[in-house]
Design a protein around this nucleic acid. Structure first.
Lengths: 226, 226
DNA sequence: CTCAAATGTGAACGGCCCGTGAACGGCAGC
DNA sequence: GCTGCCGTTCACGGGCCGTTCACATTTGAG
């Protein structure tokens, strides 16, 4: 995914933390010139501009980003509470704004909302382990670039295992957590699903699911040895 | 100036104070019915919906206000911090949001910003996915250059799906979001509408709506990252 | 090495999820 | 009131897939 443009450079600690917590990639720039120079080939996905310290420079940057041939959107501005009064004079320079002190996850929510308004989907929730990726929103799984065609139970089982890499689960635990607490069935059912998962993962990745004899199964590498 | 529609009635003290401080006239309403009954002759100027206490009722009201012949805009929602995660699923129901506890003058700034944006008509009136185009103003749908003759529910269902491409929705979720929160009916109703949609989309595009067995339905392709 | 327990393997059964066709009934318009 | 449209519901059937079983293979202890 393309990174967010962030100003100023270096980003203030509070802003940097909120950006990291949001999970979006980002890169700080000094001014409009570096914003152009450091622009990725596929462009910026948006911008988060800190305007509390040097508001004039910040809004000048906003203006420059807006006057491009393809104006940079969305553009979010971070301001101090006492700057709110001036904001209506700058409405044309921004799409949304955040007020210091930043709240946990508000930045993420506002960026996603702006993305949504522009028709881009929000960042999907993923479970990742190495090349394996599970998209929890689309119920799709892939290893590398190759999609895995999993049934419902296979997907649920792999999801649970991949969410707890390295941990060993007994068959009973898996039946409880994946199948449900009210489930009464043979424990060997787990074996069959594990086997089908291994088959669909392919020879190269079948080892991702390891058998721990007389205990259960483990996904990924052990926490102890390499 | 026309008043803002406010929910719930009576407005919580914190919300009422912020509204009074903003200087905008406002009036609280109990539900969608009173929102219609008490609507001024020249209409509401916008809405501020408190969704922290009874979120389902609040979003049901949002949905009702959006489904009017002339949807009520702008629509701001007040949520608790822990509700931020659910917001992306309701993005289509709101224009902006505020997080509790409310900050002095933030409400005023956000309402003014929304008013400013409305003056320039930035709300998207098209939903597009590949060759599929939905015109939200004229309630017309087309695929390529060929118009689709959809019924109301078919249109609403396709619109909702196309607004969240790649995402899987259970039948219950679809009943809640498309049919409405107060709907109590069989989940199989969704199947029939999906089937008719597929038929009208034609053989070539029927695959746009995919069945995710024992989960629900998905529109379009998945979103992996790029 | 021997044996038993544990696990892998292939196949078959059957439940249930979903597609399909049809019919019911409410509602609006003529 | 009649008629056509459309949202909803129902029954039926097919096929997917979760489950189970029998048998083969592996593991590890003695």
């Amino acid at each position: 995914m393309q990174p967010l443009l962030v100003y100023p450079d270096p980003a203030p600690a509070e802003l940097a933390q909120a950006l990291d917590a949001s999970g979006f990639p980002w890169r700080a720039v000094r001014d409009a010139a570096t914003a152009d120079a450091e622009e990725p080939e596929d462009g910026w996905s948006g911008a988060v501009i800190g305007a509390d310290r040097r508001p004039d420079d910040a809004f000048a940057l906003c203006s420059a980003l807006r006057k491009r041939e393809f104006p940079l959107e969305p553009l979010l501005v971070v301001v101090a509470p006492e700057q709110l009064k001036e904001l209506d004079l700058r409405s044309d320079l921004l799409d949304d704004f955040l007020i210091l002190p930043l709240r946990h996850s508000e930045l993420k929510a506002r960026v996603e909302h702006q993305f949504w308004r522009r028709g881009r989907g929000t960042r999907p929730e993923l479970v990742e382990y190495g090349e394996l990726v599970l998209n929890l929103e689309t119920y799709q799984a892939a290893i590398g670039r190759k999609p895995l065609d999993l049934t419902y139970m296979e997907y649920e089982l792999l999801k649970f295992l991949a969410q707890h890499p390295g941990k060993v689960f007994t068959r009973e635990t898996l039946l409880n957590r994946v199948w449900g607490y009210e489930y009464y069935g043979g424990a060997r059912t787990v074996d069959v699903h594990i086997r089908r998962l291994r088959a669909k993962l392919g020879e190269e990745f079948a080892g991702l699911i390891q058998t721990v004899r007389s205990v259960g199964y483990r996904f990924g590498q052990s926490r102890w040895s390499g």
